[in-house]
């Protein structure tokens, strides 16, 4: 069973805001979905490394990237060539 406080914790881990009145609904839906996921408890077998290609590499050769203008073009706000982000202190 997932509780409402679990839902709030998950939202925080995911950096997803969730309003107080959404919490009960999300909780109910999560429990229904997780009930369905319980079928996975009956899965048998071990995980094994997947077959297929290995060692897919690129050579260490510089390639032109974006200009500063292109790099900043979609940013919400910039300052002296830097991209502005929320504060961390």
């Amino acid at each position: 069973m997932i509780t409402e406080s679990d839902i709030e914790h998950i939202a925080e881990l995911a950096d997803i805001g969730i309003s107080k009145d959404e919490v009960p609904e999300f909780t109910t839906q999560f429990n229904a979905i997780l009930d369905y996921f319980e079928v996975l408890d009956t899965v048998e077998g071990e995980s094994a490394p997947d077959a297929g290609a290995v060692n897919v590499f690129r050579d260490d050769e510089p390639r032109p990237g974006l200009s500063q203008e292109e790099a900043l073009a979609n940013a919400g706000s910039t300052e002296n060539g830097f991209i502005k982000a929320p504060r961390v202190m």
């Binding site: 050769e61 510089p62 390639r63 990237g65 974006l66 060539g81």
Partner: peptide, 20 residues
């Protein structure tokens, strides 16, 4: 990605591409 690592003393965000 193929962006150059030689960025010291360069302007910010001038050694970038869609990947990085």
């Amino acid at each position: 990605c193929g962006c150059s690592t030689d960025y010291r003393d360069d302007e910010p965000n001038t050694h970038c591409c869609p990947v990085c």
